[in-house]
Amino acid sequence: MKKLLLCSLLAAAFGSSCAHDVNEITAANNQARRDIVKDKRFEPDTTLSNKLLCYGINEGETDSGFRKINLELANDSNSTLAVNYKCEWYDDSGFCLNADAQWRTFVMSGRERKSLTLVAPSPKAHDFRFKVIETK
């Protein structure tokens, strides 16, 4: 009887702490035309790269002529994932334009897909380096 009680308590505790995954519905044929960027990756944290998937980087320009990118990210785990990110932008000579960029936090529910738009700090920005690290 005691064992049964313990098991049901454990089950209840497990059930209440279990995160919910995100369901989504989109149009079967997306209307948006995307300018997809070919990317190169350096991923020493394989645990994070297994959880956080980036399945496309779309680029564009703001009305004022600043480069912007849109990252399509997905949390491939069942639990909530919190990451810190920042984007460094480089001019055409390879100089970093925003070395003092602040890490920002991005939270995704289990199996959630989210878009992240980043705008260059100057119209001189040519290249970007997106950095991501799992929160502590």
Binding site: T62, D63, S64, F66, K68, A101, Q102, R104, T105, T117, L118, V119, A120, P121
Partner: peptide, 16 residues
């Protein structure tokens, strides 16, 4: 403050 400032500036630059 830095996060909020970065977000606000991104939003301003992204708007027309």
């Amino acid at each position: 403050f830095a996060m909020a400032a970065d977000n606000m500036v991104d939003s301003m630059i992204d708007s027309p």
